[in-house]
């Protein structure tokens, strides 16, 4: 068994490695960090530009392989290199993953719980009015791209603020950023301020989750509703609601739990649109910025992180599946 595990680990490491190499080479050959320095007014002398680029390991005059070797060496020591603004990639990523997590955690959990409940309810009351309402609304929400939904919600929030008279500095619902600058993050006032900043983006993130989970939970429940063991449970003497909750729901939750486990690992990756619209400085923003700024090292570092997280997500989801479904035990 350990031999198997080691083989698997080796395979996954190779995958991550290849992905990172590909990303680095693509970024290093296609992006142009030099333009960022040359585009200034007045343009700095070429020697100075070269020097800075060398220091940051972004000089396009150095052969790609050499730059890669230097970068890879750093990675193996735990250092992901320098950003194009002379900062540290490690620090950037480190700070931002927690921002993204704070942004997404609440929405993800709430969205899953509500979605599962809605889906289960809809399946049990199939074709009744409540089922139709849930299905229709999840349809419409699923059809809305996150960015559209985010803008709508943001504008609705601004509108609500104006309506309720919060026109000054202190608002009911904040639409930009994570916390009002200057507030103490851990004080009571700070926490409530954070919450006020979270409400709108959480709503956006939740909606997508609810719509997704309710549809899949509904179909998982419908599959289970026709199963033989549900009939056996009733034949034993359980009433239909008892049988549904104890037997059907428990079995139908398994696929949802595996989805959630997968998603959980990816919370650190952030949400590009939501962060952009609501002005949070998380990983999602870094994704986009690293490309627009031609920040090769950051691009490579982010790819490495995402690759690792995707694999962790898969593993976590398999683990949850094995934990919940005795048929799949190792």
């Amino acid at each position: 068994m350990t031999a198997f595990l080691l083989r698997r680990l080796a395979y996954l490491t190779v995958l991550v490695g290849v992905a990172t190499v590909v990303a680095y080479f693509l970024a290093a050959t296609q992006l142009n960090p030099r333009s960022r320095y040359e585009g200034r007014n007045p343009p700095p002398p070429p020697a100075a530009v070269d020097a800075i680029l060398d220091e940051l390991n972004l000089n396009d005059k150095t052969p790609v392989v050499e730059r890669f070797a230097k970068w890879a060496g750093g990675v193996l020591r735990g250092d992901l290199g320098r950003t194009i603004d002379s900062g540290s990639v490690n620090t950037e990523i480190n700070r931002r993953i927690w921002v993204s997590l704070r942004l997404m955690l609440l929405g993800s959990i709430l969205g899953t719980l509500l979605g599962v409940a809605a889906g289960a309810y809809g399946a049990i009351r199939q074709y009744r009015l409540s089922d139709h309402l849930i299905t229709v609304s999840s349809f419409v929400v699923l059809a809305m791209p996150t960015v559209v939904l985010a803008v709508l919600v943001k504008n609705a929030g601004i509108g609500l603020n104006d309506l309720l008279g919060f026109t000054g500095d202190w608002k009911l619902l904040y639409t930009t950023g994570e916390i009002t600058p200057g507030m103490d993050a851990l004080s009571l006032g700070g926490l409530s301020n954070r919450l006020a900043h979270l409400v709108l983006p959480t709503f956006v993130l939740m909606s997508g989750s609810i719509a997704f989970y309710s549809r899949y939970q509904r179909s998982a429940m419908l599959d289970v509703l026709g199963s033989d063991f549900l009939r056996t449970a009733q034949a034993k003497g359980l009433t239909r609601p008892q049988a549904l909750v104890k037997h059907a729901l428990r079995t139908a939750l398994i696929p949802m739990a595996t989805f959630f486990a997968y998603q959980f690992a990816l919370l650190f990756v952030g949400a590009t649109f939501t962060e952009r619209i609501f002005g949070w400085h998380g990983m999602g923003e870094l994704f986009v910025e690293s490309i627009t700024k031609s920040d090769v090292n950051t691009v490579a570092g982010v790819t490495l992180l995402v690759a690792v997280l995707v694999l962790v997500a898969g593993f976590l989801s398999d683990l949850v599946y094995a934990a919940l479904d005795p048929r799949v035990r190792v």
Partner: peptide, 11 residues
């Protein structure tokens, strides 16, 4: 019932 595998709850 007929098919005991599907007639018992797997979990």
């Amino acid at each position: 019932f007929q098919d005991p595998l599907s007639a018992l709850t797997p979990v």
